[in-house]
Amino acid sequence: MSGLTVQDIVKPENLVYKKTDLMTDKTLSYCPGCGHGTAHRLIMEVIEELGKEHETIGVAPVGCSVLAYEFMNVDMQEAAHGRAPAVATAIKRVWPGKVVFTYQGDGDLAAIGTAETIHACNRGEKIVIVFINNGIYGMTGGQMAPTTLPGMKTSTSPYGREVVAMGNPLKITELVAQLPGTYFVTRQAVHTAVAVRKAKKALKKAFQNQIDGKPGLSFVEIVSNCNSGWKMTPVDANIWMEENMFPFYQLGDIKKDGQLIEKK
């Protein structure tokens, strides 16, 4: 292999993988190890592969991904905390031919925006909701989220989430799956290569449903780590997620083609 220069290697015919043009070149604001960057990339790859980059409008939330519009190279609107499903509903209603999605965290979607989430799902809005669940408020510094596990320590549950006083974690994905307006509901992860492939497939199905005009909303939860908020290394956070988050938030499809999947 001696004598190979960079110029010899960087040739179009040697290209095996390329960042999608639908991700900007701006440095991600996320912590190293965080799943947001991967989730962003998968959505943008899917939109590119479906040929919809000029027909997509995204809605960004409040939370760590408040700046999603800095990285996603499509038309975007930044919504108030929790209101993305209402914003997306209206966009889709006045531009039914466009592809519309929201990208929301757990505090945004499952706490302050619960009403907007449930009603957009129940009306069967033909949009895609991507829900990043890391069980904590990352942006504001690690406070308890609606999805924080029992016993889990956060800055507002410093001795662990005590369910009698602080309530139970909310499985909003299972909840919206019960509504007749949802067409596809799935829970994925992006912490391993296998998980990434599955998540991308799920996202593609969700967007394809919308493009095909399937009757109802497609809802993709991605269980993600928050190594900074959980105060762990990225590797430890992924292990902790597998051992603690996945047993509670089980991965896989919950509803497909408008039918709940029966657990065996």
Binding site: A80, A86, V87, A115, E116
Partner: peptide, 18 residues
Amino acid sequence: QAESEVASINMLYGAGGT
């Protein structure tokens, strides 16, 4: 008909923005 006035005004934000 929205689920609340909170939703209505955010629907204006969305559709008005387009």
